[in-house]
């Protein structure tokens, strides 16, 4: 069992209505690895993450987490699986009606039978890890953007999950805070041996933390490789993204006129 890869995705196909959002995505993430998922806007990376988290129904293919296919798990089995997963959402998604400490403690309250004091100590330990010691009695509204994200990380790791997911950890943060968060991700990898999946479009951050990088583009997997392999890739779309070159759109004169006059045919 322990030799199963942390994440194994085969032929993932996601479709909303008649539109294919993701197609033929095959990917394996080994245990203890930091996998960064990159891609421009509309590449399907957010949808991809929601699929991994089991938040959306998929159209075809399979997603195995820790050796178990989450598309066939029963409600109760998925409930057990969720205890092995931690997620830090883009905006933190802390519960606004609870203090930071209560937020961090919530998974413990729901999943384990411990006394209040033990849970408080565990929550403080995780807050220490993310450098937020002493902030447990504040409300989320009183925290800065970077602090909210770190509190969200503390909540995500409270159950010591085997899989940790980050959605755009650097979005909306200044470069220094963003770098601190990168260090935190690396610390979690080495200190706790977690398998970490990070969805981001920040190149600098990706190169710093990734063991491997996967590029998604227009709903397809473009390439998956180490940082060096990605840097040396001769794929034009990847190089455009790495060098921040705007996409040149092929201009079709007839199509252009049709768009302007608003005719379908």
């Amino acid at each position: 069992m322990a030799t199963d890869p942390a994440i194994e995705i085969s032929n993932l196909h996601v479709r909303y209505g008649d539109v294919d959002i993701l197609q033929d995505v095959n990917l394996t993430v080994e245990r203890g690895e930091v996998m960064v998922i990159m891609g421009g806007s509309g590449s399907g990376k957010s949808t991809f993450l929601r699929q991994l988290l089991g938040l959306e129904k998929l159209y075809g293919g399979s997603i195995k987490l820790l050796g178990k296919d989450i598309t066939t798990l029963t409600g109760q089995e998925m409930y057990q699986m969720r205890k092995e997963m931690g997620v830090a959402f883009q905006g933190g998604a802390l519960f606004n009606s609870m203090t930071v400490g209560e937020n961090v403690m919530l998974p413990l309250r729901e999943h384990v039978d411990l006394n209040e004091q033990t849970m408080q100590i565990m929550a403080r330990m995780k807050l220490e890890v993310v450098n937020l010691a002493g902030f447990e009695n504040l409300m989320p509204a009183q925290l800065s953007g970077g602090m909210i994200k770190r509190a969200a990380v503390a909540r995500a790791i409270i159950m010591d999950p085997k899989l940790l997911f980050f959605d755009e950890p650097s979005a909306g943060l200044d470069p220094v805070v963003s770098a601190e968060l990168d260090d935190l991700i690396l610390k979690l990898k080495t200190a706790m041996g977690m398998t970490i999946v990070v969805v981001t479009h920040e190149l600098e951050s990706a190169f710093k933390i990734a063991d491997r990088i996967t590029f998604l583009d227009r709903g397809k997997l473009l390439m998956s490789g180490t940082v060096d392999e990605v840097r040396n890739s001769d794929n034009k779309r990847i190089q455009n993204l790495l060098n921040r070159v705007p996409e040149e759109e092929q201009l079709d004169a007839d199509e252009y006129i049709r768009r302007l006059v608003g005719r379908e045919e």
Binding site: L53, G54, L55, M78, Y79, R82, K83, M85, V87, F89, Q90, G91, A93, L94, F95, N96, L106, P107, E110, H111
Partner: peptide
Amino acid sequence: GTMKISQELDALKVMGI
């Protein structure tokens, strides 16, 4: 509704709640 748009509902789901 507020919890939905701030992804708090998703956060609950992924925590197994």
